[in-house]
Design a protein around this nucleic acid. Sequence first.
RNA 1: GGCGUGGUAGCCAAACGGUCAGGCAGCGGUCUGCAAAAUCGCAUAAAUCGGUUCGACUCCGAUCCACGCCU
Length: 294
Amino acid sequence: MMIAIMGPTASGKSRLALETASRINGEIVSFDSMQVYRGLEIGTAQPTYEEREQIPHHLVGIYDIHQRLDVYTFTELAEKAVRDILDRGKTPILAGGTGMYLRAFLYGMDDMPGDRKLRAELDEAYDAPEKETALHARMAELDPAALAKWKECRRRLIRALEVKLISGKSILELQQNMPRQLKRDIRAFKLELPPEELNRKIAARTEVMLQQGWIEEARLAITDGLLETPTAHQALGYKIIDRFLKNELTLPELKEKLIIATRQYARRQRTWFRHQHPEALPITSSESPLPIFH
RNA sequence: GGCGUGGUAGCCAAACGGUCAGGCAGCGGUCUGCAAAAUCGCAUAAAUCGGUUCGACUCCGAUCCACGCCU
């Protein structure tokens, strides 16, 4: 048996996961695409040192910002972490806001070929607005159906091209059996706070992060090349802070933009959980314990 | 008190006497190897009251409000 706690950013997942873990002798597996990165502790709201002393956390701070991460890789890491925890006779508590990773882990993905080197090359070759025409032309020839479906989305076109080049088949052909059944023995919960409450929490947390030194953290990471990394550059807020550091924004503007970006992220998460995780039981507060009965 | 300028959605901001601004914020959706990403869609307006007109956000008048200048 294992437990999953999902929910939008700042909704209180970590707190709930921690509380649950100590109650049922569990360990936490973070399902968060950005908390894996070292050096982004404050901005990605990683658990504190004390919290990690108290309860083991897995998949937090395990990567250097320059390393590339993707769903498939993450899923493998999570698989291993979960197995270890179970082997130790403890309960894995999956907690996080990266819906796609949770979905992939809980339901599985279709078997599809992948070649990270090839994908990186394709990214390199087409990763610019002007080069999209070339990508479109190539896809029009190789996989017109996929092009029609994702013409506005370069990233998915590149993955489609990758699959086509490796397998000779259209990605659409290979992904016809999107898994709809859970493949895990899981008790899943999703935090759904009233919008005003979540907004309040987001604003408050943003303030705290800034007080904790988020700006300095960002400055260091950016100096280290964060903005050019393959995956970590997407972490919310750092590009905005970069603009502040370049004096393009005032402090109040910075705060406002960070809060807005976080709210928008939370909304996308809400949409995802609403539709992709019917197995999760809605929870309206992070204050009370999860309804788990042994 | 007088003169001037202006009042367009939550905010910013255009054009126009007769289907549409646009941007930001908001809301909804999509999502199978970069997902804290990417992408698609939706709604809300004309300060108030009258007049001119077949038709007014657009023209005219009054009123209110804001800003500026004058007294």
